[in-house]
Amino acid sequence: MTLGWEAFIDRVRERGEYDTVEEADRAARVVLALLGAHVVGTDRAELAARLPETYALILLNPLQAAEPLSPERFVRATAAWIEGASHATAAWDVSAVLSVAADAAGEDLTRRILLQLPAGYDLLFGRPQPS
């Protein structure tokens, strides 16, 4: 199921408790660009197909990470890209966006994406896995 742009951004805005659509959109763009650099192949294409076109194109941008970032470094990278963000606000941004993306992806695809990422991303996606 593909969410429309408005439905997607409304959910991000609600989860992130953003005052404006612009704040939610900025978080979504940064987090999905970083995620797209870490997820490859059919899983990335499948996730893109379930996102609004604006965000699908950002996710599919051919940026490729040299090495997978740990969840901690992913949050730090997000903070570096969002003006005025602290580590805490960036963690909030990441969780708001990735949990909505996980909802759009569904459980099976989210599980496959998590297999591509270092341990600990399950918490950022709001899908804690039993250890």
Rank of each mutant, 00 (worst) to 15 (best):
residue 1 M to S: 14
residue 2 T to D: 12
residue 2 T to G: 12
residue 4 G to L: 06
residue 4 G to V: 00
residue 5 W to A: 13
residue 6 E to V: 06
residue 7 A to W: 00
residue 9 I to N: 14
residue 10 D to F: 00
residue 10 D to I: 00
residue 11 R to Q: 15
residue 14 E to L: 12
residue 16 G to Y: 04
residue 20 T to E: 07
residue 20 T to P: 05
residue 20 T to K: 05
residue 21 V to N: 00
residue 21 V to F: 03
residue 23 E to H: 09
residue 25 D to C: 00
residue 25 D to V: 01
residue 26 R to D: 13
residue 29 R to I: 05
residue 30 V to D: 11
residue 35 L to D: 14
residue 38 H to S: 11
residue 46 E to M: 14
residue 47 L to S: 01
residue 48 A to P: 07
residue 49 A to M: 07
residue 49 A to Q: 09
residue 55 Y to W: 07
residue 55 Y to F: 12
residue 56 A to E: 05
residue 59 L to T: 05
residue 60 L to V: 02
residue 61 N to C: 06
residue 62 P to A: 08
residue 65 A to Q: 05
residue 69 L to H: 06
residue 70 S to P: 10
residue 72 E to A: 05
residue 72 E to K: 01
residue 75 V to G: 00
residue 75 V to I: 15
residue 78 T to D: 01
residue 79 A to M: 00
residue 80 A to F: 06
residue 83 E to P: 13
residue 84 G to N: 07
residue 84 G to R: 02
residue 84 G to V: 02
residue 85 A to D: 04
residue 87 H to A: 04
residue 88 A to H: 00
residue 89 T to G: 00
residue 90 A to E: 02
residue 90 A to V: 00
residue 91 A to P: 02
residue 91 A to D: 08
residue 92 W to C: 03
residue 94 V to Y: 01
residue 94 V to D: 01
residue 96 A to P: 09
residue 99 S to I: 08
residue 102 A to R: 14
residue 102 A to H: 12
residue 104 A to E: 06
residue 106 G to F: 11
residue 108 D to P: 04
residue 108 D to V: 15
residue 112 R to P: 04
residue 114 L to R: 07
residue 116 Q to T: 09
residue 117 L to S: 12
residue 118 P to H: 08
residue 118 P to S: 11
residue 118 P to D: 09
residue 118 P to L: 10
residue 119 A to F: 09
residue 120 G to W: 02
residue 125 F to R: 03
residue 125 F to C: 05
residue 128 P to Q: 06
residue 129 Q to I: 01
residue 131 S to I: 03
